[in-house]
Write a protein that binds this DNA or RNA. Structure first.
Lengths: 242, 242
DNA sequence: CGGGTACCTACCCGATCGGACAGGGGGCCG
DNA sequence: CGGCCCCCTGTCCGATCGGGTAGGTACCCG
């Protein structure tokens, strides 16, 4: 699944992002080893505050701002920053506009690190942002030092979450052991497995081929983190899925 | 208690005992096709009542009585009846004396049918009596017709239980699918099965051979009424054995 | 329209299972 | 002392499983 080349990465700022070399030079990008940053927030005050904070950091440079999703798209296309500081609440349109923008950025510019910087902590928002490719999630009331630290972390292609959003994820992981969501079919197959039926018989019972049953069984085991049907049945039984 | 006369033997001069040929005569037959019966009850009144009831049946003949376990043993050894009507409450010694007697009879004289005829219905007593070989269990307040019917049933080597004791057994069977009692070893193996381990790995884990593991697995499946390890794990999980 | 998901199918193959047969030994008990 | 239970072991064999590879259809959605 998600096991990219796993570029181990040099924390060394030199190659942290991709500012230099490449034909893709960016007009506003910093120079040498500076992190180019675009701010996306519908409040000018906030953008100004962030700019003053970040410009104080030698290795960072705010190369652009955007107050709306549309502006953000333009800025992204033209500037290709290393980092996007994104407020999910853009206030302009639907409340998923920020999330949608997050999806779009990570899909179209996978080399751009999206760090969500927003006001409220909402479980669903945190998880959804992560799901849509955000590499970090911090609340606006963090210290400036934590903010710049998070930016550098994301620039290294690592994850940066403040403690509260981290615990949200942890909680989610605890209740969601990876993939407990079995499909209808898988659930039915699982029940028959627990009844001691062989793949072949399960197939004749459900009017599908034995091969298909094996297909489902493997998916069930993968989702439940089991290596045998027996373990799958046990885990499912513990989770009361059966 | 008061167990006055209750002479063990043939109070009946006629042909209560073994008049003709061979000590090894077919135990059941008093004479031709009569069912020889021994009554075991510590109350003379009850014995007398039973005797009068049963002697009214042409195909039955009470050949002996006993008020205590000791008397019963003597009567059994000498009379070898087809049927023993046994009251589990003998009142003389320990309260398991009747059950112990039941065990002894069925072990030493397997051809003798033991029909428990007692006053109270106690789940544990019913199950224990069955476990010790009783072929029937009826409460004393049944109709005389039902009693004689039960005796004939037991004489045919079938089971005779009144509706209440039958439901006791049924309830027990529902909660006790035959043999839920796993040994220590089996329980340990079962846990490892639920962890998705193969027989081989379970063996190395428990320092026993793979063959032995298969041995245990088969016993586990048999006891849980499962045909695969997956089903066994499921059943065990339901029964909270795991 | 490409991308994601659920669902379906085939062929192959080594590992494992389930069952049958045929034994060991130690402990408890009538 | 036999009988029963628990525990242990071996060999043989066909059925099944787990996993890999390589497709197919249908649907929804950005």
């Amino acid at each position: 699944m998600n096991t990219p080349p796993s570029r181990v990465m040099h924390p060394d700022p030199a190659g942290a992002q991709r500012p230099n070399r490449e034909s893709e030079r960016q007009p506003g990008s910093g120079r040498h080893d500076q992190l180019s940053i675009v701010l996306v927030d519908d409040h000018a005050i906030v953008r100004q505050g962030l700019r003053s904070i970040l410009d104080r950091e030698e290795d960072m440079r705010v190369v652009g701002e955007a107050a709306t999703a549309a502006e953000a798209r333009t800025a992204l296309e033209q500037l290709r920053p290393a980092i996007v500081l994104l407020d999910l609440k853009l206030g302009t349109g639907s409340d998923t506009e920020g999330l949608d923008l997050c999806s779009e950025i990570t899909r179209r510019y996978p080399e751009v690190g999206v760090l969500v910087l927003t006001t409220f902590l909402d479980d669903a928002y945190v998880l959804e942002a992560v799901h849509r490719g955000a590499k970090g999630y911090v609340i606006k009331d963090v210290d400036t030092s934590e903010l710049v630290s998070s930016i550098r972390t994301v620039a290294r292609d690592e994850s940066a979450f403040d403690s509260r959003s981290a615990s949200v994820m942890a909680r989610s992981l605890r209740t969601t052991p990876e993939e407990p969501a079995l499909t209808e079919r898988e659930h039915r197959v699982l029940e028959l497995l627990a009844s001691g039926l062989s793949n072949r018989i399960v197939g004749t019972t459900l009017f599908i081929s034995e091969t298909t049953v094996k297909f489902h069984v493997r998916n069930i085991m993968r989702k439940l983190g089991a290596s045998t049907r027996a373990e799958a049945v046990y885990e499912a039984s513990k989770l009361d899925l059966i």
